[in-house]
Design a protein around this nucleic acid. Structure first.
Lengths: 197, 197
DNA sequence: AACTAATAATTGACCAGTCATCTATTAGAT
DNA sequence: ATCTAATAGATGACTGGTCAATTATTAGTT
């Protein structure tokens, strides 16, 4: 992957293929599906990726980079109060699920985690590592909120964040099952109640 | 399916095959996997089931019957207070996830829902119908608890139950990803905090 | 004999991954 | 500048194997 054109094809495969796997899952997505989505010949796939498993891991890394990094900027915006940042952070994420993704796609990492964690260690690790990092980043802001009295200090910040994140994961599953925004809206409503001092 | 032996084989396929699909998911489970797990010849599968899809729907019905019906008895035990029943109900379900299933399997319906809801309407419907019924049954007890002042009456019972169920779903996903009981334990801890008047 | 239940064998489509062969690009030597 | 050689990328045919589903046949019962 030394040339510009090569770099382009690599990213084309990653992004178009990621979307297919995001929607259909790991086992239902064939390498043919991926190369067709990217408009790249079958043989080229194995020039850029060792295997379908390798593709999934790299797609996950790409996914987190594309979808968490923008949200992290909200968390880090020190011009706002910690609680306000948390609110906007969760509002931002849920609005994408509802509007951009039409309550259909959920989260690539949750989807692959649910399907593959028990059976593929590399994919499991790729997900756990990133999700742990994300929870830590959110927990930092929760701790700030606790320190300045915006949130209840009697609960462990990481426990709260873990619960929030898990509830969000489940809400996405229900959202897909019901094909409705209700689970996400209800999640936000409960989150706001839970976050009040 | 007129003979006793036939009935036995049908249930053997359902129960053994259900476990395989529960663990591996829909797409990673082949009809061969199912018949091998049940010790039944390949050809017999299509005598008892129209298709793999038909098998999944029937397996889901069997799953809910086997796993929700015992828990429902706890909900209906009028000798205890509503809130006590809710506590025991959730405690019962989470203890199965931890002890019986070793934090590995999660819930068949959630697994298939996550993997298939977007792409298979029959499977989606089978899951949604049953989960709606279950939420209604739990909500009845929450309403009782609200009526006798054991729980906060300012929130809609179905919203609360939906949130509880979704949080549980997400906790199961994380449980599988982390291969740890922490998400479930944390879920129960938060549930108890949330349920206090 | 006539019917139902059970099953082994088979089918054609599709799978992940390989490979030989091709072209395009770059680097070094003169 | 030009030639040479090496590297990087591109490509579709192909492989061994597995898939869901069908079919032809056999066994069992009435």
């Amino acid at each position: 992957m030394k040339t510009i054109k090569g770099e382009q094809k690599f990213h084309e495969l990653l992004e178009k293929g990621m979307e297919v796997m995001w929607s259909k899952g790991y086992n239902a997505t064939s390498v043919n599906d991926i190369v067709q989505a990217a408009g790249v010949p079958k043989g080229s796939f194995y020039f850029y990726f060792d295997s379908k498993e390798d593709f999934a891991v790299k797609a996950l890394e790409c996914y987190f980079q594309q979808h968490f990094d923008p949200a992290k900027k909200i968390l880090d915006d020190s011009s706002k109060s910690p609680k306000q940042r948390l609110r906007e952070f969760y509002e931002f994420r849920t609005s994408i699920l509802k509007n951009e993704l039409d309550c259909k796609m959920g989260c690539l990492a949750c989807n692959l985690g649910n399907e593959m964690a028990e059976h593929n260690e590399k994919i499991r690790q790729a997900i756990v590592t990133k999700e742990t990092y994300i929870k830590d980043e959110i927990a930092k802001v929760v701790k700030e909120a606790q320190a300045c009295g915006e949130m209840d200090s009697h609960m462990d910040a990481l426990d709260i964040v873990s619960f929030f994140e898990d509830a969000g994961k489940g809400a996405m599953t229900s959202m897909k099952e019901l094909n409705s925004a209700y689970p996400i809206d209800n999640y936000m409503q409960m989150l706001n109640k839970f976050m009040l001092v």
